[in-house]
Design a protein around this nucleic acid. Structure first.
Length: 344
DNA sequence: AATCCGGGGCG
DNA sequence: CGCCCAGGATT
């Protein structure tokens, strides 16, 4: 009984949000479709990624892999190639596997139920809720960083969003304001969180919910959401050898257990006798999340064909002219290094 | 429950 | 320079 009262009390917030969304939805390519494949891809691409940062990747990806089967049939390396520069590369590996999952486990038809969608590799509760609600009328709130921020402010709720219980807590809060059209509601929360209820300098004057927002009425918007966890950055150093002979270069593929999963890189060690061909060493500094990365790259130009042939025959390196660095996916800093090197 | 995974934008 | 972002997998 009490719950019903609370439901009816707060439901007008969700409806007000829907009304705002009708006239203020962002004009994005994946808003014009309910194709679950496209919605799924966009949800994965834009995990932890701003729209402007991932929009070109999304468009290129959809153009090359327009549907589940084209993605499932692709080589993993090519999927990685279309992910190059986006970060979180396990996402690319997982969508590729998930596409194959849809072919084998679901007969090539995109699953429509939340629980089924949740089975796909790389799909968690957020993405399953988003796809099922936007494409199939599912009724789960797609609780993400935007939900945490908007709801914690509207209710002036200091529940710590860093803890693992935050998802369940804010999911319940979301149920209180969730209107009939859950798909639009979920997308409206994304747009409100991105355009109005921003982390810094939110535009509360333009917010459709400002009359309902407790934090705003208390002038304490900047106090929410509460996040206690602080992370420290540490240093990471990598060494590479840029080994080449007459325009040919040696590369190898990374494993999938650390950073830059399955991306390509230069040799990490070389035999003693090749050290004498070293021309110089460049140091690259690069910022990774929570890591200050420095990379030393030794330029090793082999001048003896015998040495070159002997070396490549003994090791499992891949030989490339690097002129399709658009044919292999390299980590960002190595990509820059290659571009500069090939100019000379 | 805690940790890891990229890269870019912003104040 | 620290924080944040359309999170999920792993341990």
């Amino acid at each position: 009984m009490e719950k019903n009262n609370r439901d009816s009390d707060f439901l007008h917030i969700g409806n007000k949000l829907l009304g705002w969304y009708k006239n203020n939805a962002r004009d994005l390519p994946f808003r014009k479709t309910k194709d679950p494949y496209k919605i799924w891809i966009c949800e994965i691409v834009f995990q932890q990624t701003r729209i402007n940062q991932g929009l070109n990747h999304y468009n290129n990806f959809i153009e090359r892999f327009p549907d589940v089967s084209s993605l499932a049939e692709a080589q993993e390396d090519e999927v990685l190639l279309y992910w190059k520069g986006l970060g979180y590369y396990s996402r690319a590996i997982n969508i590729h596997k998930a596409a194959q999952q849809i072919m084998t486990d679901f007969g090539g038809v995109f699953p429509s139920q939340y629980d089924e969608i949740l089975e796909l590799k790389g799909v968690g509760k957020y993405t399953a809720a988003a796809v099922s609600s936007i494409c199939f009328g599912g009724r789960m709130p797609a609780v993400d960083g935007n939900f945490y921020r908007v709801l914690s402010r509207v209710f002036a709720d200091d529940f710590d969003i860093s803890g693992s219980r935050a998802f369940a807590y804010f999911s319940e809060l979301a149920e209180l304001v969730m209107p009939k059209n859950v798909g639009d509601f979920n997308q409206a929360m994304m747009d409100l969180g991105s355009e109005i209820c921003k982390p810094k300098n939110p535009l509360c004057g333009e917010c459709p919910l400002n009359e309902d927002c407790l934090a705003f009425s208390l002038d304490k918007v900047s106090d929410f959401p509460v996040k206690t966890k602080k992370v420290k950055t540490e240093d990471l150093h990598l060494n590479y050898y840029f080994v080449h002979y007459q325009g040919q270069f040696l590369i190898q593929q990374r494993k999938d257990d650390f950073i830059w999963k399955k991306l390509f890189e230069f040799p990490v060690v070389i035999p003693q006798e090749l050290e004498s061909f070293t021309k110089g060493v460049k140091t690259i500094r690069h910022k990774l999340t929570h890591k200050n990365l420095s990379i030393e790259i030794a330029d090793v130009e082999i001048t003896s064909e015998m040495v070159w042939l002997d070396f490549i025959n003994k090791n499992g390196y891949i030989i490339t002219d690097l002129h399709g660095s658009h044919e292999k996916s390299f980590p960002k800093p190595l990509e820059s290094y290659i571009q500069n090197s090939l100019k000379d």
